[in-house]
Every structure is written in C-alpha cells, then in structure tokens.
Amino acid sequence: MGLSIGRMPPARPLQDDDLFEIVQGGSNHKFTGKQLRQAIVAMERIKTVAGVGPDESGDIPLNLGELAGGVRSVAGKKPDAKGDVPLAAADLGLAGLVKKVANKVPDAAGNVPLTTADLGLTGLVKKVAGKVPDAAGNVPLTAADLGLAGLVRKVANKVPDAAGNVPLTAADLGLTGLVKKVAGKVPDVAGNVPLTAADLGLAATEATAWTNATIISSVVLKSGGQGGATDPSNTLHAPPARFRRVGRQLQVDGCIYCVAPIRSPTLAFKLPAGFIPKWGCHVSVAYTLPLTSQVGTAVIQVETSGNVSLPDYVPHKANLYINFSIELD
C-alpha cells in the first residue's frame, strides 16, 4: 500500500480574526491575529530595559531597585525605596537665613512671632498731660488734662460750671433795659413789652366832624324829631339825621320824621365821596309814634352809590331813629 502525502495549503497573510493557541510553561495562551501582530511589533521595537527583556505579553517587569541610581542624592540625601527624596528647609539651606528679629529666633517653621512691644511701638509716648499710656498705648484725656477748662474765668460775673459752660440770661448780657418804654409801657422781666392795638394807636383813629344829612324826599320826610323840630329844649324832639367817618368806619345817627306814610322805596339822603361803603347793606332801625307810643322796626338800605333809602313801609308821623355803623372797606 502506498503512502500518499498531500500538498500543504498555500501560505496567506495573517488576519486579525485568526485564532491561535500557544502552550508555554504548562499554560495555554490564546491570541487573535491582531494581538499576535502587536506582540511581534512590540518585541521587535523594545529589546531590553535595565537588562530585562519583554515577556510573552510584551511587558517588561521592573522593580525600583533596577531604576535606582537615576537620582543619586539631593542635599546629601538618597532616594528612598519609592524614589522620593524627603527634604527639610535645613536640607536646602533655607533655615538660618534670619537669625533673630527683636532678639527672637525663628521657630521650626522659620517664623518669628512678634508683638508691638518686640518692635518697640509701645512706650514711644511717655506721658500726655501727666498721664502715661495704658496697656493698649492709649492716653485718655479730659478738657482739664489739656488745660481747656478754666480758660474762661467769668462771663457777666458768672463762673463756668463743671463742664466749662456759662449759663447766661438776657439780663446777664445787659440786653434787658435797652428799651425803656413802648407806648408808655416798660419791658417786663423777660424784656418783652406786651402791646395792644390801642397802645399802637390802631384802635383810636381820628374821627371827622358830624355832617347833617340833606333830606331829598322832603315831601314825606323831615330831618329831626316830631314835626321836623330840632329844639333841644323839647324832649319830644330828636337830633337831625347826620353822619361821620371814624377811621374806615361810617357812623350814622339822628332822627327822620315821616310827614306822610311811606308805602314804596323812598330816597332819604345821599352820602358824599369818602363816606360811601364798598359793599351795600341793609340795617334794621326802630321807629316810634309819639302820640300813640307805638313801636316798630323798619329797614334802611345803604347802597354803593351813596344812596340811603327806606324800602319798607313806615307809618305816618313816625319818628325813625337811625343809629348804626358799617365798615367802609
């Protein structure tokens, strides 16, 4: 029987999804085509590190002992097992640069804790007005300490109080008595002069002389008392109607006798310029009938034209007594 050997399959490029199993040291290791290609490339690129070559996975296991010697020492100190070199300020020559501040040496961290006393800031002011500074360096002072109290000895014969104030009155300053009298009145203890309108002459204005009214409607009216007579010796008679001005006030009085009964508005007399009020008004007046002793009232109208008239009914033979005052403005 003959032995037939077939032909080997032709070689082909390594594919990423090819699978391989390698037995090494009793362990099975599986790789893909991609992983195998990466391992081959890594093994060709890195041969050894510190005399150690890559293992099957391409890693190079190293320990710190194999790396020691890169840094030999820093400030006379060698690296520890981790490669670190722990240093202190003294190792770098930083300690000892400042020996003392205000006679104090630096602490382990190189700091020099100081107080104001260490820097000589307290004690710069020994005394102010005989007082020494307190622990904080302050000097509490009063006006007396600075010599301000007592600068004013007296004002108007009064001495300052404990606070240095001099309480004064108008009398202390001589302000009272400067005005001796106002309208015949002397100042009171406070220096005031209480005055009234009369004191200033405002209430006692000069009055004009009386002027007898000229009766206009003489057919029905007569100036004076009963029958028009004005004989003062006869008590039945009254003075004639008259008027005057007192300051800004119009005064009217006297009597008008009604010769005939008044049944419609009748003009009695007319006021001249300077005696005419700014506003018209109506004034109620009394009348009497001497023969019968009848008493009644009537109205007199004063107009801004100066007319003084009787708008109401007044009986025959009545004495109309007019006595009123009105403001001119």
Rank of each mutant, 00 (worst) to 15 (best):
G130R: 09
L178V: 11
G228H: 03
K158L: 06
V283L: 06
Q294G: 15
P315Y: 14
L94V: 09
V112N: 10
V252W: 00
K181L: 13
A136R: 13
V159A: 14
S73H: 11
Y287S: 03
G2D: 11
A238N: 13
L250H: 09
A273W: 06
L267F: 05
V283C: 04
V219R: 00
P277S: 14
A241K: 01
S223R: 05
G177V: 08
L19Q: 01
L221Q: 12
S223V: 10
E66R: 15
N323A: 08
G137W: 15
L151P: 03
K30H: 11
S325K: 02
T48Q: 09
V105K: 15
A129G: 09
V128Q: 05
C258M: 15
L36T: 00
P140E: 13
D59K: 03
V71K: 11
G147D: 08
R242T: 01
R244N: 02
V132I: 11
G83Y: 01
V155S: 09
G25M: 10
Y321F: 13
T142N: 02
I300C: 10
W279K: 07
R12F: 01
L64I: 05
T304H: 06
W279D: 13
T115Y: 08
S325F: 04
T116C: 11
Y257R: 10
P232F: 12
P311D: 13
E206H: 00
T292Y: 00
E206L: 01
V41P: 04
T304W: 02
A50H: 08
N103L: 02
G110T: 12
G228Y: 00
P240S: 09
A39T: 01
L202P: 04
Y313R: 07
L87N: 08
S218D: 03
P277E: 13
N323I: 06
P9F: 08
A117I: 03
I300V: 15
G177E: 01
S325M: 05
P9Q: 09
R245N: 06
A50P: 02
L178P: 06
S223I: 06
Q301K: 04
E327P: 11
I5S: 05
V285W: 00
K30E: 03
L267S: 04
L92P: 10
I46S: 07
L97C: 08
G58A: 03
L124W: 12
A143M: 07
L146Y: 10
G6R: 08
V299N: 12
A162Y: 05
V155G: 10
G25A: 14
V285K: 00
P79R: 05
G123S: 07
G120L: 08
D329L: 14
T235I: 14
K222C: 09
P9W: 06
L92A: 11
T297Y: 07
G254W: 02
V302A: 04
D17C: 04
I322H: 00
L291P: 03
Q226M: 14
A298K: 02
A144H: 04
F269T: 12
R45K: 15
S27H: 09
G174H: 06
V74E: 08
V246T: 14
A203V: 10
K34G: 02
T122W: 12
L151I: 12
T205A: 02
P272A: 12
A238C: 09
A209D: 01
V52L: 06
V71Q: 14
G227K: 14
E56G: 07
D172K: 10
L236T: 07
E44L: 15
K317W: 10
G69K: 12
G224A: 13
A136C: 06
